[in-house]
Design a protein around this nucleic acid. Structure first.
Lengths: 150, 150
DNA sequence: GTCTTTGCAAACCTTTTGCAGCTAT
DNA sequence: ATAGCTGCAAAAGGTTTGCAAAGAC
């Protein structure tokens, strides 16, 4: 019995005990497409676990990332944002409001760039990790009155 | 005379006095393609200006960015990196070592993505700001012995 | 002389960590 | 009983800011 548990632990790369909090942290990030940061997770889970601490959220997110159960999308406005959809895929980030959107479709021709773009030959580009920038729909609308181009 | 100077200030968006330190900070960032961070600039300029402080570097970089004389490439390994080449263009970032490489070529077909990639229609993508990820030449070599894929 | 820039240190923010107590096994 | 978890608070690391002194015009 103990041996079986240890084998499972080894196979899955974990030596972990059960933790309801950890389960909820991963579940919450997986349940949304908003690519949240640690604080967002903390604020949603705090009512459910009044004794939850930010350190626990950070610690668990970090270990999930190291185990490959979560991916980091990047740092937006000073805060690291995560993705529970673990298959690599491109993202769009709104330069104005920081919204992150998943981009779908195959990404395997010309290393993810259109013709005319010169990729230095020593670089290995993983097109599934490409990040596009621009303005999301909401920020475009807001822009029709103003004139700033971020 | 005074009026002319004030007009220039208004037109250029500045009301600034000359500062040798500021000049050197911008010049140094423009002189390299390494897309440095604030600390890199500080360490190079400190021997030249022994009384230089990090705050001055940060303050000037920030105002250059706001004036459009510098661009921010993004946060790599916790540090914000800048580009003195101010015309927007795509970048490559090595996921292993954080090296940043300029990508050249036109970027105007399909908003910078190959066919097969679905860009939600409400998004306005600026393909000149695209960031590619992967491994640089040096990190690929280092990888031929190991097996990790970042 | 007036207004900008700078040095210095403190403040800020996000993220990490040390440690003692708690929990799952 | 033995690890692994968590709360709490302190520490880190990068960036910003308040203020008085120094510098440009």
């Amino acid at each position: 019995m103990i041996i079986i548990i240890k084998m499972m632990a080894v196979l899955s790369g974990r030596k972990k005990k059960h933790s309801r909090k950890r389960d909820e942290i991963l579940g919450l990030i997986r349940s949304t497409t908003s690519h949240p940061g640690a604080r967002w997770v903390y604020e949603r889970l705090k009512p459910l676990f009044p004794r939850l601490s930010l350190g626990t959220v950070y610690r668990n997110i970090r270990s999930f990332r190291e185990e490959g159960e979560l991916a980091s999308v990047g740092v937006v406005q000073g805060e690291e944002r995560f993705d529970g959809r673990v298959q690599p895929h491109p993202h769009f980030i709104c330069s104005r409001c920081g919204k992150i959107v998943d981009i779908d479709g195959s990404m395997d021709k010309n290393q993810g760039m259109p013709e005319g773009v010169i990729i230095p030959p020593d670089l290995y580009v993983d097109p599934r990790k490409t990040v596009l920038y621009g303005l999301c729909g909401d920020c475009r609308k807001a822009d029709e009155k103003g004139m700033t181009t971020v």
